[in-house]
């Protein structure tokens, strides 16, 4: 099997994640789509690691996971705060910037 298939998969998942971020309104789903994009990147990293025969890609992937964990913690806290004040998790409701 050609190893580049993993990369194609990674690209496809990333793109689907991007679409999800732009079209879904539920903040939690949007957030999950962001996680999907990060995971797609991780897959690419791991594949590159194998391609080049070094562990640097895996280390990068590891760091991505750590940062993603941080992001989830803060992001979910923001969603909770938002939900608490507006009783809604829709990102479209938080559109006060235009005024």
């Amino acid at each position: 099997m050609d190893i580049s298939n993993y990369l194609y998969l990674s690209a496809i998942l990333f793109t689907i994640g991007a679409v999800g971020v732009t079209i879904r309104r539920n903040a939690i789903v949007v957030f999950m789509c962001v996680e999907l994009m990060l995971n797609a990147c991780n897959l690419a990293f791991v594949t590159f690691s194998r391609l080049h025969g070094t562990l640097d890609g895996q280390v990068a992937s590891f760091f991505t996971m750590v940062v993603a964990a941080c992001e989830v913690v803060v992001g979910l806290a923001i969603i909770v705060t938002m939900y608490r004040s507006r009783r809604s998790a829709s990102v479209d409701d938080a559109s006060l910037l235009k005024r």
Partner: peptide, 17 residues
């Protein structure tokens, strides 16, 4: 363009990418 919707901004980022 500045419609206040975070999804629009995300879309613009996607277009930038």
């Amino acid at each position: 363009i500045q419609n206040g919707y975070v999804r629009s901004y995300a879309l613009i980022m996607a277009l930038g990418a």
